[in-house]
Design a binder for these strands. Structure first.
Lengths: 218, 218
DNA sequence: CGGTTAATTGAACGCATTCAACACGAGTGG
DNA sequence: CCACTCGTGTTGAATGCGTTCAATTAACCG
């Protein structure tokens, strides 16, 4: 019953070593902000414990969730001089924080570049998968794909009877998938009625028919 | 009346130099494939002339356009071992092609890493913008945002009376925006009826009310 | 227990899609 | 030059999916 969604995506070891030495560990409570949208990009963050979401607010108040981050993930790897997204703790979090310049001086420019490259690479993978998810899928498929990725991330949930924990609420799911909470809720009950998944609690589920789920998530 | 959408996004100079020396130039006709979805990532491409689109086909035949690339852009900067998207020439194209290993040997690993980093960085920017576009926008807003980005890319179309050329057809627009061609068409005529833009030809337009367009693209 | 927030469910609406017909333009051959 | 065709784009009408608004239920916490 771990909250680790992607099993063992460890950052490059040189960077980890540098961060373990240089970084200060900070704790964030639920819904606390790790960094703000629009703030200058100065630090590098590594999530040690807990779950973080990145969100972006448009001028007219609509919210888009960028992604969810789990223990081991690197945060704050954005491209421009300012953060395009803000990062907020979904659960209580433990985060290593370090100035970019510090780790650069410690680990060397080349190692730093390689580490950043690796991190950005993963960001790109996420973003591209997100585009595919948002582009041409029905609400049903979006929700199914979301559940599938949650279940895949949870180590050993594939065949085992252990349930998958969802750290995020319905609103976060909706804002990630580009849907309303009502639609998300309807699709979840629909999938449950068809016995594809089962929810013993609001934020805990178990995949019952993996093949059906995969077919839906396409 | 250039087809260059992003004005002067030149790749890192070290890489350009390497490619000018090492790359072989290839020509692609309209709708020819530069590389295929699923093919191993072996080469690096630089678009010298023309326009390229990247597309991804899902198992059930739905198509998502990843992005459009213009002269000066780097192509084939994908993350995994295989191409997630295929790249096709939208117009007749001139492309520099080089094996990744060759440029690595020529320019050095560090320079290569930095160049790749810069390229992936831009890919990430595009993908993130694409997510925002697909997530929580109406058809009207999507189309407006698309026209806006086209117009911004076309050098000096801002105030000038010169029209913007659109190299892609309606189907490509639709598959980029996650809409149907009919909806795209309807939104275009709608925007034209409101005199926000004007289409003297199917693939040529002029922005008439820039403030209205920007407000819509939000 | 109440009090509060989050999630579900219902009904009506509206936006985008679907299916179909039509218009337009470019290219070709009579 | 016109007729014909084919591909592409536009327009219309009807359907349906997801939203919106509203009410209800469930979960959480004092």
């Amino acid at each position: 019953m771990t909250l680790q969604a992607r099993p063992s995506e460890t950052a490059p070891s040189a960077l980890i070593a540098a961060m373990d030495t240089l970084a200060t560990t900070r704790l964030f409570g639920r819904d606390e902000e790790v960094y703000a949208q629009g703030a200058p990009v100065e630090h590098l963050y590594r999530l040690v414990r807990g779950v973080v979401r990145t969100t972006r607010l448009t001028a007219d108040g609509r919210r888009q969730v960028g992604d969810f981050y789990y223990a081991g993930d690197l945060l704050g790897l954005e491209v421009g001089p300012d953060h395009q997204f803000s990062a907020e703790a979904l659960t209580d979090c433990e985060v290593q924080v370090v100035r970019r310049g510090a780790v650069r001086a410690f680990a060397g420019d080349a190692a730093m570049d390689r580490a950043i490259l690796e991190g950005i690479r993963r960001e790109l993978e996420r973003a591209q998968a997100h585009v595919m998810l948002l582009g041409r899928r029905s609400a049903r498929e979006k929700v199914a794909a979301f559940l599938k990725s949650m279940a895949e991330g949870c180590a050993g949930a594939r065949g085992g009877p252990q349930p998958v924990e969802m750290p995020m609420g319905r609103q976060d799911m909706a804002d990630y998938l580009g849907l309303t909470i009502e639609t998300v809720s309807r699709m979840l009950t629909q999938l449950q009625d068809e016995a594809v998944v089962e929810f013993p609690a609001v934020r805990r589920f178990q995949v019952k028919k993996w093949d059906r789920l995969e077919a839906l998530a396409a």
